[in-house]
Amino acid sequence: MFDLSSRQAKTIFCVALAFIGFFLFFPIYWLVISSIKGNTELYRAVPTPVPLAPTLEHFVKALTAGKLPMYLGNSLIVSGASACLVTILALYAGYSFAKYRYAGRQPVMLFMLSAQMFPFGLLLISLYPMMSNLGLLDTRLGLILSYIVFAMPVSTYMLYSYFSQVPDELIDAARADGASDLRIFHTIVLPISVPPVVTVFLYSFMWSWNDLLYSMTLIVSDDKRTIGPGLLLTYLNEVNSDWGGAMAASLLASAPIVIAFMFLQRYFIQGVTAGAIK
C-alpha cells in the first residue's frame, strides 16, 4: 500500500509541511520584520524581505507614548484572575467527576461540556443581561466572571482525564493513613498534578488574553480596557497610519503568552507520578 518511508511519501510530507509552515509562520515573520523597519522603509512600494536598517523606535514609542502599558496591565489582571478562577473550579469539578460516584455525574459533566458547543457570541447574548442585572457591566469582576465560559468546560475535562489516571490505590493508601477526602486532594493529589494544572492555567489564560468580543462588549471605560480592544481601537481605524507601531504593539501583546509557554513547557512533558506505582 502506502509505504511511509518511501521517497515519494517523504516528498509529500515535506511539501505539506512547508505549505502549512508558510501559512503559520509567514504572517508572524512579516509582523516581526515590519515592527523593526523604520517608517521610510516600511512604506516602500516593493517591501524588503529583510529589514535594511533595523530599529526599535516603534517599540519605544508603543511603550512610552500610548496607553499600551495600561491595556497590558488590565489584561494581565483580568486574564490572570479568570485563569486562577477557572483552574480552581476545574480542579474540584474534575476531581469530583473522576473519583466519586454519584447520581447524575455523567449528565452534569456532559451538560458542562455542551457549553463548548455554542458560539461564544451566543453565550454573550445571555451573559450581557445577567451582568447588567448584577450591576457588573463595565467592571473587571464582570469580565473575569464572563471569561469562565471560554475555558471552563475543556479545563474541567482535561483535569478529569488526568485525575482518572491517578491510581485509586494511592488515594486508598492515604485514606487508610487517616487523611480526609479534602486532605487527600490537597496533600497527595494536587502536588502530583502540577503539569496539568499549569497546562489548564495557561490554556484559560490564553483564551481570555486573546479575547476581543467580550471585552469590547462588556467594558466601556477606556481605563479598564484590555489589550485586544485596546489594540484594535488604537491602530485599526480610518485615521491611523502607524503600521510600525501596530506591529510592535501586537508583538508586545503576544509576548506574555509566548514567554509563559517557553518557561512552563517542561511541565507539559514531565511525568511527576513516576515512582508511585511499581
Binding site: 493508601a173 492515604a174 487508610a176 493513613d177 502536588p191
Partner: peptide, 19 residues
Amino acid sequence: PPSKRGIAMVFQSYALYPH
C-alpha cells in the same frame, strides 16, 4: 473509618506518595 481501626494495609502497587 480505616484509620481508627488500627489496621495498616500494604498495597500491591505500593502506592507510595511520589512527591
